[in-house]
Design a protein around this nucleic acid. Structure first.
Lengths: 249, 249
DNA sequence: TGTCGGCTTTGAGGTGGATCATTCATCAGC
DNA sequence: GCTGATGAATGATCCACCTCAAAGCCGACA
């Protein structure tokens, strides 16, 4: 997390392609100094994706790795009969490329217009081998993802629908605050209700109903359909942790 | 997985502490050559644990890392009201120490008499920094765990109780075959029904009933209470993947 | 051999969340 | 303004799985 390593981020040469990148502060490449960053940057390119379009599909050859710089990505797995599980949502600064074997384990689709840095996996791996600090950061990212996945297992295995929804909003809020380095009660929802449902192991109807319930309990408010205001963080936290003795009538 | 790297495993000095270790073939330390293995070995010690006893608890300082050499470990998370999620089961060769921050994210308890190698985290981290091949193997383990966690998320979020149980047995079988480097239709269950239930997001009663159902469908057989014989691997696989049009009456 | 205690199995009944169907709101195109 | 498309909210019904309770089973130990 908090890294005190000296980096030369501010004084990138004017016109450096990474110059205006908001994501670098929290991204993998944030551990690189200016020259290494330039070298890495030259190994790959960028990619733009419009909402709803797939970056890759489950089972595709994983020939590239990605860093998200703008927008949001939805990761999904499918069962043969069409049941879908959303494995997670990726935001600027998140790395997409920790795969076992050479196939993607899930499908990645853009939720809105999205920008990414893209690197051929072989070249990226070479570069990582030559930069232990990057390798260590990659490992840290993997450990972070693993911890998140384990929290999600607890959620899916043992939490009630209301607890899941509360956890979800708090998690989104935390990620957006880390990204913007600011605190705000407002949380953007770039995904639709069905995506939330498939992420939380529920149906969109349940999400809708529970949302109404949380609103009625004054725990949150819908600013627009795709932005919530968290009105009662302690209350939501208690609910999310499973400490609430159920929702009052 | 399949590593063709030349290692000198067979010709360890007689009396080397790792000489008789069955786990080394699949463990982290399997990538080290003889001298490095000896060095690592001297950094730590071993620990024995009898069934039911905890290695550490959720929230404890993560001052040590472990390698399981014998037995089995159950990893759990608790909700304040007592609901429990089993995060996974660890067997010989598995590494216990991929943590974010300095606190354990789950409790680890022995299922039966269990032996581990133990290393102080600080010294282990130092050693890893000096051995890139170990660092890479550690990353591979993390990626592997992450993939497993994601598969479990799909299971918990979208699979039926029968599909979960079938997936569980197939996964256990695969892990035991990898460990013994042999194929056997028999799968040992070092954990009790309640553990299986808490792992699969079900109740012990449901596990018990579904077990009876799978038996009746001739998909498996209980050799003893703690050992199943998988009678129909294709059938179980179809069921586990969600391809079965439900269980026949 | 008996009996004690823990784990597993079985049974009966309840319910949370799913499913299906409908309604409502928003928006684009004309 | 009308029409059709898309996503969200809501209502009615149902079922997979849970809860609670009571055997059944088996190893441990005297």
């Amino acid at each position: 997390m908090a890294s005190a390593a000296p980096r030369t981020l501010a004084d990138l040469p004017t016109g450096h392609p990474c110059g205006g990148c908001d994501a670098r502060r929290v991204a993998l490449c944030g551990v690189l100094d200016c020259t290494d960053l330039t070298t890495l940057r030259c190994l790959g390119g960028t990619q733009a994706l419009t909402g709803g379009h797939a970056l890759f599909h489950e089972g595709d050859r994983a020939s590239q790795v990605y860093n998200i710089t703008n927008g949001a990505i939805r990761l999904t797995k499918l069962l043969p009969d069409g049941r879908r599980q959303v494995m997670g949502f990726m935001f600027p600064g998140d790395f997409l490329g920790i795969t076992l074997g050479d196939e993607h384990a899930f499908t990645a689709e853009a939720l809105g217009d999205t920008l990414l840095c893209r690197f051929p996996r072989a070249r990226f791996d070479e570069f990582v081998e030559e930069h232990p600090e990057l390798e260590r950061e990659l490992y840290r990212k993997a450990a972070h993802e693993l911890a998140a996945a384990q929290a999600q297992m607890l959620l899916l295995g043992r939490k009630s629908a209301a607890e899941r929804l509360a956890s979800f909003f708090l998690d989104l809020a935390a990620r957006q605050q880390r990204l913007t380095a600011a605190t705000s009660r407002f949380v953007d929802l770039p995904m639709c209700r069905a995506d939330v449902a498939d992420y939380l192991g529920l149906t969109k109807e349940t999400v809708s109903r529970l949302l109404a319930q949380l609103k009625q309990q004054r725990l949150l408010r819908l600013e627009t359909l795709n932005q919530v205001e968290l009105l009662d963080l302690p209350g939501l936290t208690t609910l999310a942790e499973g400490g609430a003795d159920m929702l009052a009538a």
